[in-house]
Design a protein around this nucleic acid. Structure first.
Length: 275
DNA sequence: AGTACCACCTGACGGC
DNA sequence: TGCCGTCAGGTGGTAC
């Protein structure tokens, strides 16, 4: 985090399911049922499959009527037809800016409303995406996204994992299997389930699957309800202790950083014995 | 099928 | 001081 400014009541991490759910709630609270007065896209690199002109034509003068989230994707319905789609990449976040307020430093997409307030997608590294799609379900199908992590029941979860031969962390993060979990929350879920990120589905017994599923749901819902803010989650979570060598919050061992499926994975070698 | 590696993009940080 | 390599990790592509 370093010198990144701290904002209260807002997600502070990489945009995974809980962070995007926080943005969805913010969007639903502040961006619906009011006229869009202006659309600003100073930089087109994040626009995918939609031109600046089309964005303006579809949005200006319209009202957004409802929101949806699927994994890390946020959708907002434009009137009763198409949907605006926002993806936050690695550094994207949604900000609600007051009239005459200062835009965030990397404002890539601004929805200005007729009351002067604006919703702004700020994304320093420009790895996020802005698009307009006909239908979220169609988008999900076209891009092969798995079911949303919070809508997967116990049995489905088990079926999705049991055929896989790779490690658990890899499976949890695979958006085509389960949509919404990234590097940080996969570590958290595995830590709380006391499972090693490299352990494999065949290593799990029935109780193991159930525990993993319960923890997955609990971690993602609790994180979203606490604004996906690492400072607001319980101190017993791994999240506030993602530092090599730091004491495990259960006081069992010391946190280690590993390199797993191309990511920096944090784990407690004592709690999460390799399977 | 799974993994490794690169690219995209920017900024922080450590080494020299 | 300042240049340079490395790291951060979501997604998508290629190669093995």
């Amino acid at each position: 985090m370093g010198l990144t400014e701290k904002r209260s009541g807002y997600s502070d991490g990489m945009p995974e399911l809980p962070d995007v759910e926080v943005y969805r709630r913010e969007f639903a609270r502040t961006g619906l049922h009011r006229e869009v007065a202006g659309v600003h896209t100073p930089d087109v690199t994040m626009l995918t499959g939609v031109s600046r002109r089309r964005l303006r034509e579809d949005l200006e003068g319209a009202e957004l009527t409802t929101t949806r989230r699927h994994g890390k994707h946020l959708f907002a319905r434009i009137g009763s037809s198409r949907w605006l789609m926002l993806h936050f990449g690695m550094t994207g976040r949604l900000e609600h800016v007051r009239p005459e307020g200062t835009l965030p430093a990397h404002a890539r997409f601004t929805l200005a409303f007729d009351d002067g307030w604006a919703l702004v997608l700020d994304d320093q590294r420009r790895l996020g995406r802005v698009s307009i799609v006909d239908d979220p379900d169609e988008y999900v199908a076209t891009f092969g996204l798995g079911e949303d992590a919070l809508r997967i029941d116990r049995q489905t979860f088990r079926n999705l994992l049991c055929g896989r031969r790779g490690g658990l962390k890899s499976a949890l993060m695979d958006q085509s299997v389960i949509a919404g979990i990234g590097n940080v929350y996969s570590d958290e879920i595995l830590f709380q389930s006391r499972l090693h990120p490299r352990s494999r589905p065949p290593d799990l017994d029935s109780a193991g699957y159930d525990r993993l599923h319960r923890r997955l749901r609990r971690v993602l819902t609790m994180a979203a309800d606490r604004n996906a803010d690492p400072a607001s989650v319980p101190r017993t979570w791994l999240l506030p202790h993602r530092t090599n060598g730091e004491r495990c919050p259960r006081r069992n061992g010391h946190i280690e950083k590993h390199h797993i499926v191309g990511r920096g994975a944090y784990l407690c070698p004592v709690c999460q014995s390799a399977g």
